[in-house]
Design a protein around this nucleic acid. Structure first.
Lengths: 237, 237
DNA sequence: CGGCAGTTTGATGTTACTCAATTTAAGTGG
DNA sequence: CCACTTAAATTGAGTAACATCAAACTGCCG
């Protein structure tokens, strides 16, 4: 059971950071679980990374959803991004011990933790690791820039549509989508915290989309009826 | 004249990416201008990087101010960040040929352009380059995350105060500040585009700060009279 | 059946935007 | 040095977008 975990939980290893790491390990290590990697699971809502708190490990999400966020002193929080299976919890964690953000599980989740020092050592030894990290880091910067654009320049409807399109694209990159139905285990509170609106207003926006026959979102499933329209509203340029 | 340029224009080479690059070149190259590096100047408002347009070079700002931005089809633009002397125009440009953003000079500016392929080659050869890039990339991600937080969760006054504090900190990191006076060559339009407000509202916010005796901003100089208060308004947590 | 978390709806308030006019500052040519 | 021009900043009035508060509704689970 445990031996087969990596393959079962990360069927799309080639997509993520996990891929480069494990590939680099296959050559130097046996089939056995190396001691610098370990698995862990998290319950919905469980805190995985606490801001400013030093952590030994670098985490990759194997299964389920999670998100990175920043907790403000006034009780609000900004969700920085959502993490899907295969995602590294920010490339910054590879280089910095104390993260500048927090992270928690959204659903039941499984994580893979890698010892940071070992990951760094592998970066030095294996150029492919560096390449993979560089790619991830570029993607992370672009994602953040896009969110800045959405938050700075777009209306409520546009932001929500943007978030849906963004998530749809990422989900579609790792699984086959049938009939434009996407599994989105988000409360409206999460959407609100991600796009800088109140849950009440998010509800109105989604209601409006529903009335227009653009989408339907209920019980964790987003169904898109009019992708064209959603794109016209939510795409950034 | 030309020989002494690098030192004159990048007095704080150790701070930036320029430092690692040139250091790595000192060992392998003579004192002469290497052919994979060249200088260039830009007039205020001149476009330096055009989104989606392939560029051979990676740019470092030597002197003056510039900014990265994204132009929306509705005429609006989001300024992603301001660039100060020593700054690399996004670490993403090192790895990707086609940038996902544009950039233009804010003031009279001098740039240093490095051939991307050469920079990449040096990354492979010299570990210090990688380390420098990793550090920059982490800083860039954190900067973007902070802006997301400011745009998503903070009021107009808080955002403007945040921008000032952020720029003050970066300016102070590269020059001695006397009596809390900072040279900020920004129009209110730039501030507006950076924090997602209209220029009119930015004017009101700054006017309000002025009335309260917190700051004074005119003819390109920001003077801070009450740093404590500015921090209470603008700091993120 | 009751309780609870999440969503929806309505009424009202606040923030920031828009439009337009006015003032200030910075050049420019006589 | 002073009128003239132009860009930027300020100010005011009216409006739109989103927040807030509170109540009602829904689905789910014990």
């Amino acid at each position: 059971m445990r031996m087969s975990w990596p393959c079962v939980t990360c069927p799309n290893r080639k997509l993520g950071f996990c891929g480069a790491l494990l590939k680099s390990s296959e050559e130097t290590q046996s089939e056995q679980q190396p001691n610098w990697q370990h698995y862990r699971s998290a319950r919905p809502g469980e805190q995985i990374i606490v801001r400013n708190q030093a952590a030994e490990d670098v985490f990759v999400l194997c299964d389920g959803w999670a998100f990175r966020f920043f907790q403000l002193s006034n009780g609000r929080r900004q969700i920085l991004n959502f993490l899907l299976p295969g995602d590294l919890f920010s490339t910054a964690t590879v280089f910095e011990e104390r993260p500048n953000f927090s992270a928690q599980a959204l659903t039941e989740a499984r994580l893979s933790g890698f010892s940071r020092s070992e990951v760094q050592a592998r970066c030095v030894a294996d150029l492919r690791m560096i390449r993979a990290l560089a790619k991830l880091s570029v993607a992370e910067i672009y994602m953040a820039d896009e969110l800045v654009i959405a938050l700075g320049q777009r209306s409520a409807e546009e932001r929500v549509a943007y978030l849906f399109l963004h998530l749809m694209q990422r989900i579609a990159a790792r699984s086959v989508i049938r009939e434009q139905r996407y599994h989105l285990p988000l409360r409206q509170q999460h959407i609100a915290d991600a796009v800088g609106l109140t849950p009440v207003h998010v509800s109105r926006v989604i209601g409006h989309f529903r009335d227009q026959g653009i989408i339907e979102l209920s019980s964790g499933v987003l169904q898109v009826f009019n992708l064209e329209k959603l794109r016209r509203i939510g795409s950034l340029d």
